[in-house]
Amino acid sequence: MGELRLRVLETTALTAQVRTLELAAENGGTLPGFTAGAHIRVTLPDGTDRHYSLVNTLPDTAATAQPATYRLGIRLEEDGKGGSRHMHGLAAGDVIDASLPRNDFALADTDAPVLLIAGGIGVTPLISMASELKAKGRPFAFHYAGRSRVLLAFVDELAAIDEGALTIHCDDEPETCIDLKALIGRAPAEGHIYVCGPRGMIEAVREIAHARGIAKDHVHFELFDAPKAETGDQPFEVEISSTGQVFTVPPGKSIIEVLEAEGVDLIYDCQRGDCGICQTAVIEGIPDHRDVILTDDERAANDVMQICVSRAKSSRLVLDL
């Protein structure tokens, strides 16, 4: 059971694939506060959980200290593992278990200009950021990209926050297609970039910003999906340098899953390759990097890896654990 029991007050379809859920405390009263960019983890019927960003857009930032409701935005993933189908099937009156709000994607405490870049449902954590930035009078630009305008949710709400800061980019409208190189090229070097969306978008933003000389700690990102198993994945061995233990990691299993099942104590969080908490030094072997944390130069060095998602190109890795 989660730390919160939340009752569904209302569900609303924004597009053919995106639905919002309005949630309140099961027994009434206010909910725990949160900061822009935060998420909650919702427990599914099979005991697993999924994290969903809080998309509250109240212009009064004090309202996030004791909110009456949480609002989630969820895209239906037809080829997913069933979490989004379950969430889309909820109705008013249903009760779910959830964690307390957590924020791994918080706004930096600075007055520097902010560039927000969203791809598809990656817009959700950036909505509360835009609301907070506007309320605090901080300069920002919001660029929201997707395949087609009819598939983009929350556009009206974002326009209501600050229409002048919002630019929409659609793949089927050539004149509006997003040009990340030009966009980041115009961004103030001292500013901060926040990007959420598909893995390819995040990696492109990271590399373009790195090439331009923008500090790595000024580029922030959050990835919703973990990498899927790839055709041709092979088993490999992992040796723990401190004990000499050797474990085999089969296709479809992560290093973390295998080591934890064997009783190895590990520190990790996202299991998507975007938080960096599980980063581990590589003593021997060649990793197959599948994270969005490391730059291309850092990947080429092959001296660290994110063991939640990355695999091996060599038959064995020796890790500093």
Rank of each mutant, 00 (worst) to 15 (best):
Ser99Ala: 08
Asp269Leu: 02
Ala182Lys: 06
Gly37Pro: 03
Val264Arg: 08
His192Val: 06
Tyr194Phe: 10
Thr12Asn: 15
Glu190Gly: 10
Thr69Lys: 01
Asp156Phe: 03
Ser310Pro: 08
Val238Ile: 09
Ser314Arg: 07
Leu21Gln: 08
Ala108Gln: 14
Asp274Leu: 00
Lys136Asn: 12
Phe140Glu: 10
Arg299Phe: 00
Gly164Glu: 08
Gly2Asn: 06
Arg290Gln: 11
Pro250Gln: 05
Ile40Asp: 06
Val238Phe: 00
Leu158Lys: 06
Leu90Asn: 06
Ile202Asp: 03
Leu294Asp: 13
Lys136Arg: 14
Gly82Phe: 03
Ile255Tyr: 07
Gly73His: 01
Leu72Gly: 13
Cys270Met: 07
Ile121Arg: 04
Met1Glu: 14
Val249Ile: 15
Gln271Gly: 04
Ala36Pro: 02
Ile161Met: 07
Leu107His: 03
Leu183Met: 11
Gly89Trp: 01
Arg290Lys: 08
Ala38Cys: 03
Glu173His: 01
Pro235Asn: 11
Asp217Cys: 04
Ser241Ala: 15
Phe154Asn: 09
Ile168Arg: 13
Ala215Trp: 02
Gly232Glu: 04
Phe224Trp: 11
Leu321Cys: 13
Met87Glu: 06
Thr57Gly: 13
Arg41Tyr: 01
Thr57Pro: 01
Leu152Asp: 09
Asp46Ser: 07
Thr124Tyr: 01
Leu44Pro: 05
Ile96Met: 04
Asp291Asn: 10
Lys134Gln: 15
Leu158Phe: 02
Val264Met: 02
Tyr70Cys: 13
Ala98Phe: 00
Ala130Arg: 00
Asp79Gly: 09
Val18Phe: 00
Asp291Pro: 11
Lys136Gly: 02
Thr176Gly: 11
Leu115Pro: 04
Ser128Ile: 00
Gly164Gln: 10
Asn56Ser: 12
Phe140Lys: 08
Ile127Ser: 02
Ala25Val: 02
Met129Cys: 06
Arg19Lys: 13
Asp303Cys: 09
